[in-house]
Design a protein around this nucleic acid. Sequence first.
RNA 1: GCUCGAGUGGCGGAAUUGGUAGACGCGCUGGAUUCAAAAUCCAGUUCUUUCGGGAGUGUGGGUUCGAUUCCCACCUCGAGUACCA
Length: 939
Amino acid sequence: MKYFHNEIEKKWQKFWAENQTFKAENNSDKPKYYVLDMFPYPSGAGLHVGHPLGYIASDIYARYKRHKGFNVLHPQGYDSFGLPAEQYAIQTGQHPAKTTEANIKTYRKQLDRIGFSFDWSRELRTSNPDFYKYTQWIFTELFNSYYCNIDDKALPITELIEELEKNGNAKVNSPCDNKTPQITAKDWHNFSEKEKQAFLLNYRLTFLSDTTVNWCAELGTVLANDEIVNGVSERGGFPVVQKKMKQWSMRITAYAQRLLDDLQDIDWPQPIKDIQTNWIGRSEGAMVSFKIKNTKNSFKVFTTRPDTIFGVSFMTLAPEHELVEKITTPEQKDAVNTYVKATAKRTERERMSDVKTVSGCFTGAYAEHPFTKEPIPIYIGDYVLASYGTGAVMAVPCGDQRDYDFAKHFDLPIPNIFKDVDISESAFEDKGNTIIDNSDFLTGLPYKKAFKTIIYEMEKQHIGYKKINYRLRDAVFSRQRYWGEPIPVFYKDGMPQIIAKENLPLILPEVEKYLPTEDGKPPLGNATNWAWDTIKNKVVANELIDNTTVFPLELNTMPGWAGSSWYFNRYMDAHNSTDFAGKEALDYWQDVDLYIGGSEHGTGHLLYSRFWQKFLFDRGYVSKKEYAKKLINQGMILGESAFVYRDLETNKFLSKGLIKDKKVQAIHADVSFVNIANELDIEAFKNWRNDFKNAEFILENDKYIVGREVEKMSKSKYNVVNPDDICEQYGADALRLFEMFLGPLEQSKPWKTAGISGVYSFLKKLWKLYQIDENGKATISNNEPSKESLKTLHKTIKKVDADITNFSFNTSVSSFMIAVNELTQQKCNDRAVLEPLLVLISPYAPHIAEELWSKLGHTESIATAPYPVFEAKYLVESTKTYPISFNGKMRFTLDLSLDLNKEEIEKIVMTDERTQKQLAGREPKKVIVVPGKIVNIVG
RNA sequence: GCUCGAGUGGCGGAAUUGGUAGACGCGCUGGAUUCAAAAUCCAGUUCUUUCGGGAGUGUGGGUUCGAUUCCCACCUCGAGUACCA
């Protein structure tokens, strides 16, 4: 009987679905194991061959763990809110829900063909009200919480209110302590309700504030820092400008230190940890106050080099700094105004592209040096960012290159405060062991000592204090879009109010237009009836609302990362209708044991989700402060684009070898028109697009040879390979094996369809090995297998088991090939070998394994079979490698078929040339030989 | 600029973490089978050679009896980040 992958695969996919083979129970005697993929955004283009790479790896692992006796949770769902569906809706008028639904159907069909062991009964979609009900609920919980720096955790806001009533905010240092004014209990009592609400916004973990945001006019929305790449929007590549807007933000900065510290506890790839560490950007330094001469004003600066304070020769404020207006002298007013306006106009991108141009303006004001009392001129300059530190710096030109350049440009003094250091060309930025000079009481001290001394002195004289600063910013949470979770907030007296849990979800309304309203409100502003209905009938039915002063509902929606910040908890109890997940389920599944997905989410999803988990942990809703123990980033599968070359003179297409030094235009040709030998199917190409219909080709050796280049797989490059086609032609098992065989999981690698013939012929050989007769039964013997066959089997068990543990799936595929070749040669047909082998292969190629398993007479799915145990005794047969330990290690390979005893092995080892070299004439005191393990020579 | 990561045949990539470099697959060459093709099977395939060998894991040094693996410097490529005081 021949191997027909199509029949087999369809049959078993149906079997698994009908028997719910992979449905996970929320309790079991078995230990739990949770394998999670980053769920896909269902785009209109469908899956290409690169997408399933991570899913295949996680599926192999999930199936492996089931064989190993674990109760495995392996769910899948869709991140179904997002911008592309909305943009498509704007263009075509199609409701995003409809296109999303259609896309999900395509995705599901494609995924099903690959034979994943997902528990689809737990499928979730972030755009589903059943799901976003809890996304909204978490938002309200964040709103109702503050970060307590004493307990170092989030607490209910009610506890803060109690404290304010008793003691004011003297004790509760908010993370935003720069801006929050100190109040007493009396102040609090004197506040009006509105003032109280406004004050609490300084503490809530999600809060409304006027912030400078990245505004993208083309997309009509604000963007978070991680949604901007090279100064333009990640999606679409549109320009982004800075703009002040009233926005919801998430106070992720409150968690900066814990997000940093807890990286130590999780087994995540080092690059991701590095990325997050850099993004959080912790730096230690000091906050220093400077008085402004002849006024009562003062301002603070943050510096990482307080030890260089005697090298300050000017101060620089960000052009947006609030003091600029107050301190600028009348003579400088015009110049300053011009400069401030000019910088405001520049986009982020322009600012970035000319970082070398020094610009700034003198304010006319002077600060007072806190120690020497000397006057220091105050400048403004756009190299100082309003959003970092205090938006002001003390400039030490001898110790900072930017200050140095600024000083040179404006001809300001550059006092040298480093001993024996030349600063005539550039600033000296090394800390090292430099000795501080010309610095009053710091003179003669090395960096570290000077740092400590100056902070001690500052704190003593109330000039400044030690301070840790983070680069991380609070995450802007509002989006002026339609296709996202509505923010569950209404406004009363201008102050935001939360919609209670029992009134959630706040359903996304239908709108006629997906564009902003005419008066510039977000798309939800088109749904006036929805807003009023929600308010009156549901939200505050018993409250009297002043229709004139209250705008009913928040019209912004949540950003794309809201749903993905907690979805992993929902899978644990996906159908719970009263809570985001039941306590029992949460306690049972705890956290994700293995998470697989792309590294491009390092500063987005992978950071935000850790933040939300910590918050849920603080408030007692989940039991783990990190949600994923281990993370693996799968690499990208790249496409191999094909190019045809149009001669710019004759307009004819030249075969690759004929280009020489002619001027040609390279044009992407669809890769499906090209065969293994890089020959183009000219007819197919002509019929492809109208403008190629009458194309003329100049051939070499009667063939048109295309050029090839490895690029990202994308529709516009016509290099996309569809997994459906591969499944049709070679089968899902071949696709799975091949994707793994392509190379290490975490590396990027090009896809070459030609290579799949290797794994395909492996599957055919495997099939042949079981000798299926005309009745569809395997020819199998129940005899004792040969020693060789047992050796092959156990060697393979050992290797594959180690491979899976190390996630090097590529080498196990090699091992399978070797095993099948050897067993074929040995003419092995023994049940005791062929059955365990099938279990080994089953995670990788589940369909063929199931089919052969059933042909061996089993009625249960192979998925429930236990993983075979490796027995060392079968490997110590012919040769064995012996490591020798003596000032290092040495390995020996001895032929054990000779059945050597201890003494004989010792003799061989001792007379060996390498041993003699190692001993270099010395006599060994003792030679320890442990057969099968180690040879130890004690010198 | 800073921070990571990687350089091994024609190609994708192995190498038990310091012990016979190039497993396995693709491709290529030759052969068997076939009227022929596909499919399948067998042999070969790092380079060089006067057939004894010699060289060889980006380059140059070092440690070691022994280095693709460890250390130092450099070159190239990739990723992240970008005026963060």
